[in-house]
Design a protein around this nucleic acid. Structure first.
Lengths: 339, 339
DNA sequence: GTTAGCACTCTAGCCACAGGAGTGCTAATG
DNA sequence: CATTAGCACTCCTGTGGCTAGAGTGCTAAC
């Protein structure tokens, strides 16, 4: 893999990324001043194909990159763009709004990333399980209905309307919630479900039931709920590889299966690098075998808690996307420090 | 418009709805036992075309319904299916879950309707403006951040994280929120923004600022926020009229423009009928001119507050959709009574 | 009024064909 | 010996002509 091969491969992929058409030796020699003739390029391209970096759709077409070619491009060849300070500022401004709830940040991020990249974006929210119980409040929605509001110490909030037990009144429930919060504040949510203790030792039977209900509600909080936010999914229709409705259906259908998306994104090795790229068949899910996914992690209080990612055709603007995600994930982590 | 013409028109539309192919006289005579020959049908079809109920894609194709044809079909011809009690039960079960927050019902409804009809579904939530202030709670998310939880008397809930003013502590804000709730409970949300009064007459300057902030937060609550929930948008890809990616983009793009959708659905005359159908160019929005929309209203405390609707190709299963929406909207209204 | 028959029209699909793009190979070149 | 010009070859793509088929409208007979 000498310098010239690298040069050719890089240039070819750059061209294919914008043109979406197989690239021939002639185009390469003419359009980009490589200083060598098309015949030489042909020889090199034949080698690159043998090495598995390029493919030929058919005999008399140009070459397109293989998955391996893209991988090499991403790892070694692509030219990272200069980061304009206006870009960073834009991201910071977006996060600087006075609203500071985590769910809001997640939506904001997904929206912004899909806007900035023109690809669909997926953001995974922090798992509730790892957080600790912060506080609980109860309010009365109407005669028969209560609203429980539960917060974690990391700032996630969930509310849940529940019927008021017939043999209790509002004050009793509110008092119980206060007791509950006092008892369990600071405990990891995932440990709550194992606690079937009743420190009230109350003689009132009805308290026991409600206490256990509270425990149950806490413990299944968001474990089944949606951690995955999808934005800009229509962007996928811009790209010619998705002219075919069947392909669109496969990919968007996959993105709506939250568990799968979560699994895919968490399967990235989070420690080795800040941004991870999954190209085509590197993914375990065949529904997105003609897509690439770029994922970055973000942190909350120094711990990686979620992912921001972008999905698009394999012919993706990797350099731009990687850089964008680096900025966004960094700024998101910074914003989540409640600076 | 004699009985035979009606019969032919109805049968033709029935066939076209499932086949998506222009229907010829031969098909009509053979497949459905109409008791008349294809020649007669041809004559009638020529008349129906002249009357504006049918169209011919080209000379030697069969006929397809015009917008006017669909309109006549919906108003006069379509056979309403028997409502199976299992269907009603399914809807009731879905609404019978112990979670009773309005936002939850909205999502549940959109999801269920798109499942039951195999078309995309759109649900408009009740406007916050018309509701009255119920209660306010404050909780502390962390050192510098508060969470305001606001409920209306009709059971809508919104929470909003805000920074804790530097010169105040949590107890002071909590006290102020309580005062605020006491002062304004029962007042329509939309009137809140006109109230710049400060009944505290407190000498503490900082209280004034927070009081006004509270007012500001209340008054812009959800007016800009998302009232429209979209579910099952991928269903649109099932139908051959949306093979073309450009069409998909137009329609789904429209559905993501919430104000437009809101405007479209609220433009239906809510009082004259329970279910309203918009066919093709009857819509003011050209993005959905080759779609039909079926809309039903639902009630909260006896007032119409929102819409449940379905969008699909003009060749839509009107009878099934209308019936489904009737059931769902009725059951939703019933469920929202907090029965 | 209804229907059989028939000529007519238009489309979709198929085939053959030419043009073009791109390759691989060979031989010449510095 | 690497590079390159030249050329034959391959394969796709687009075009035009053609046919089969579906469906119509009209006329004449019932």
């Amino acid at each position: 893999m000498d310098a010239r091969k690298r040069r050719i491969l890089g240039t070819l992929i750059d061209d294919y990324i914008v043109s979406a058409e197989p690239v021939g030796s002639r185009t390469l020699a003419k359009k980009y001043g490589l200083g060598i003739s098309s015949a030489t390029i042909r020889n090199e391209m034949a080698d690159l194909e043998e090495l598995g970096f390029l493919e030929q759709p058919h005999t008399s077409a140009g070459r397109i990159p293989s998955d391996r070619g893209y991988r090499y491009y991403v790892d070694e060849l692509m030219q990272r763009p200069q980061v304009g300070s206006d870009t960073v500022n834009r991201v910071r401004m977006a996060f600087a709004a006075p609203v500071r709830e985590i769910a809001w940040f997640i939506h904001q991020t997904a929206q912004m990333v899909s806007d900035m990249t023109a690809y669909p974006s997926v953001v995974v929210a922090p798992p509730v399980n790892d957080a600790r119980l912060g506080d609980i409040r109860v309010m009365q929605l109407n005669a028969g209905t209560l609203l429980l509001v539960v917060a974690t110490d990391s700032g996630m909030v969930e509310n849940r309307a529940v019927p008021l037990p017939e043999d209790m009144n509002f004050e009793q429930v509110a008092w119980l919630a206060t007791e509950f919060a006092r008892e369990f504040r600071g405990m990891p949510i995932k440990e709550l479900k194992d606690r079937i203790l009743d420190p009230l030792a109350s003689d009132e039977e009805r308290y026991h039931g409600l206490w256990e209900s509270l425990l149950a509600w806490m413990s299944d909080w968001r474990t089944n709920d949606d951690r995955v936010t999808l934005a800009g999914s229509l962007n996928i229709l811009r790209y010619p590889e998705f002219r075919d409705v069947g392909k669109v259906e496969r990919v968007l259908g996959f993105l709506e299966r939250e568990q799968a998306v979560e699994q895919l994104l968490q399967g990235t090795s989070p420690l080795s690098e800040q941004v991870h790229v999954i190209i085509g068949q590197e993914s375990p899910f065949d529904a997105i075998w003609d897509c690439s996914v770029v994922t970055a992690t973000y942190q909350l209080r120094g711990h990686i808690v979620g992912q921001v990612s972008v999905i698009g055709p394999k012919r993706m603007q990797y350099a731009h996307v990687v850089t964008t995600l680096e900025i966004v994930s960094e700024e998101l982590s910074r914003a989540l420090k409640w600076a």
